[in-house]
């Protein structure tokens, strides 16, 4: 497939989308402090270019699956963000009606297959989605995301081997944000070029500037084309950075404020904003209008989540089995 042109409207969409994701996550952090969101909360701030560039490369029926830093991916695929905020708050209006919470967003309608809490557990699932698409000849490609920490799990290596053996239409995308929780990449292996792990399986692999949506798009488009045309899997290492802690409870003693500031100079939203301004794609007034829309939509999300109810107690039993009369054991 020829590369899509990155036009003015693409830049403007990227800008508005990424800004919205950033503000959505900031609001989630605020709600966490207010204790409206509980449990764990892992924010995507800083990594937005990976998602923006990837989604631009996806076709209608392509699939996406990721780990637990997963609030904004379904939004990018078309899920109503209000439902994501409601899920974060544990409300019935949420994507999983309050069953999943922060780490478990899903949308069958929009081909978003989660939202998975166990590091590396989603990697074989992604290959499995691709296995089904190959078997059923749907032509769809699966983008399977993971963090840099996940590549040290056995599930990663077993899946890379099987995906090559069975020539599955899947793109493995490592979001290398430098840290597996508080442990830097250098402290998890004797090598740091993670993409090279593909070489052992003879899988096409490359590092990508994960702060630049254009670089991400080009790499994912090429990999998706390869998968779609029967060329099998690709391993991409997106070199990115997260501005926030691993989760809300992370004091971030493992890195310096200077390091964070250094990466923020390469901020993907800043990069796109600069292009828009340099090329005069939008006036200051138009950019203000985008900011205002983003702010309003974030507020709408909070309002919807606030107004939605917690699930009633009987819902605990509703979605454990698809069998509707499963005889649960009930104790005193």
């Amino acid at each position: 497939m020829p590369k899509k042109k990155i036009t003015k409207s693409v830049y403007l969409k990227w800008y508005e989308d990424m800004l919205f994701w950033r503000k959505f996550e900031d609001k989630a952090a605020a709600l966490y402090i207010q204790q409206k969101i509980r449990g764990f909360l892992h924010l995507y701030n800083g990594q937005e270019a990976v998602l923006a560039g990837s989604v631009f490369a996806m076709e209608e029926n392509d699939r996406m699956i990721t780990a637990y830093r997963n609030h904004v991916q379904p939004i990018a695929l078309g899920v109503d963000p209000k439902k994501i905020m409601a899920e974060l708050c544990g409300k019935v209006g949420g994507t999983s009606q309050g069953n999943g919470g922060s780490m478990h967003m899903f949308s069958k309608e929009h081909n978003f297959f989660g939202g998975h809490g166990i590091v590396g557990g989603q990697i074989p699932l992604g290959a499995g989605l691709a296995f089904a698409d190959k078997y059923l000849e749907t032509g769809a490609v699966t983008l399977t995301y993971m963090g840099d920490g996940a590549v040290r799990q056995g599930s990663f290596h077993e899946t890379l081997n099987l995906a090559m053996l069975w020539n599955l239409p899947v793109v493995f995308i490592i979001e290398n944000n430098g840290y597996a929780m508080g442990t830097s990449v250098e402290r998890t292996a004797n090598h740091t070029d993670i993409y090279k792990l593909g070489l052992g399986y003879e899988m096409p692999c490359e590092p990508v500037d994960g702060m630049d949506p254009v670089a991400v798009y080009n790499a994912v488009q090429e990999a998706a084309d390869r998968a779609r045309s029967g060329g099998g899997p690709t391993l991409l290492e997106m070199r990115t950075y997260r501005y926030k802690g691993h989760s809300m409870s992370d004091a971030q003693h493992y890195r310096t404020k200077d390091e964070v500031a250094e990466y923020q100079k390469k901020d993907p939203i800043g990069i796109v904003e600069k292009i828009i301004k340099d090329k005069k794609y939008a006036s200051a007034k138009e950019l203000e209008a985008i900011e205002s829309r983003v702010k309003d939509l974030v507020n709408d999300c909070v309002k919807y989540a606030d107004e939605s109810e917690f699930p009633t107690a009987d819902n605990l039993y509703k979605n454990v089995y698809i069998q509707d009369d499963y005889p649960f054991i009930k104790t005193f």
Binding site: R63, P124, G126, A132, T159, L165, W166
Partner: peptide, 22 residues
């Protein structure tokens, strides 16, 4: 399908494929 000795990998591929129509 014969699999390599990789129970974690092929069990997970099985689950993923079951989420997607098989």
């Amino acid at each position: 399908l014969d699999t390599p000795i990789a129970e974690l990998g092929f069990a997970g591929i099985g689950v993923g494929s079951a989420m997607n129509g098989l």
